[in-house]
């Protein structure tokens, strides 16, 4: 907490992830500043999601370091990473399908709750209070992403765009300092994309740093302050959107892919 507001919230140093012979992430270093929107782009299979998985503890990096908020979290387990303040969404939505939207968000709140087994077992007053508070907070988050009226529906019964929003609400419920969004606009209509960009701005307004993977260049250019481009696991460019757009290697990487 004593960190200056302007410092880096996430620093990756020489991060490498190998699967057998395949190098999915190759010696990537990058710094994300507190309070910015940082985008990670690259062709399919460039290792973007793998990089996310290394940050969130789903994978253990083969080498390199992950520094979050000034602390080394390399090799932490996913739940430890979440507790430190990194939340994420998934590329192919992973909601708790047969739980209500409200419960999905309340699960996100889990890590900030204090109730122990005994409190729950005997419904002690402090547990009841906490439950009430958490329900309020969860409803507030559902309103924040605009799906409050579906609070009691099963997550799986939501429309596609609403599911993406619910996933964001669930991630926000963990009180993150850094939010990782994995292709949040995938499959969205132009209108939904505009709404998403507004939502990201609102999230930023809560003092949360956003780190996103996105394919849609309009979205990326519209909201992110800095961009890193990955290709075959390597970082090939970094900088503000306008610069990256003109970078020869980036154009090659994308053209090579489509050719």
């Amino acid at each position: 907490m004593s960190e200056p507001a302007a410092g880096n919230i996430l620093e990756l140093t020489d991060l490498t992830k190998r699967f057998g012979g395949l190098v999915a992430v190759d010696n990537v270093s990058l710094n994300i500043k507190r309070g910015e929107v940082f985008a990670l782009i690259g062709p399919n299979g460039a290792g973007k999601t793998t990089l996310f998985n290394n940050v969130t503890g789903l994978f253990k990096p083969t080498s390199g370091r992950v520094l979050f908020d000034g602390r080394d979290i390399t090799g932490f387990k996913p739940h430890q990473v979440a507790r430190r303040g990194i939340a994420r969404t998934f590329q192919n939505i992973r909601l708790f399908d047969y739980m209500s939207c409200l419960d999905n968000v309340r699960v996100g709140r889990h890590v900030r709750m204090k109730a122990k087994v005994w409190d729950s077992l005997f419904k002690l007053p402090r547990e009841r209070k906490e439950e009430e508070r958490v329900t309020e907070e969860a409803m507030e988050l559902l309103r924040f992403v605009g799906i409050a009226k579906h609070a009691n529906q099963y997550a799986r019964n939501l429309a596609y765009g609403q599911q993406r929003r619910l996933e964001i609400a669930r991630a926000l419920a963990t009180d993150p300092k850094l939010l990782l969004l994995d292709e949040p606009a995938a499959g969205f209509t132009p209108q939904e994309k505009v709404e998403l960009m507004q939502l990201v701005k609102k999230i930023l307004g809560r003092g949360i740093t956003v780190f996103l993977i996105e394919h849609d260049m309009k979205v990326v250019m519209g909201i992110s302050e800095r961009i890193v481009v990955l290709d075959h696991g390597e970082k090939i460019a970094e900088g503000p959107p306008d610069e990256v757009r003109k970078d020869v290697r980036v154009i090659e990487a994308y053209l090579g892919k489509s050719a």
Binding site: F19, A24, N44, G45, T49, T50, Q91, N92
Partner: peptide, 9 residues
């Protein structure tokens, strides 16, 4: 991307 992600996992 979905397929490759799953196989990587």
């Amino acid at each position: 991307m979905v397929g490759s992600g799953a196989s990587v996992l």
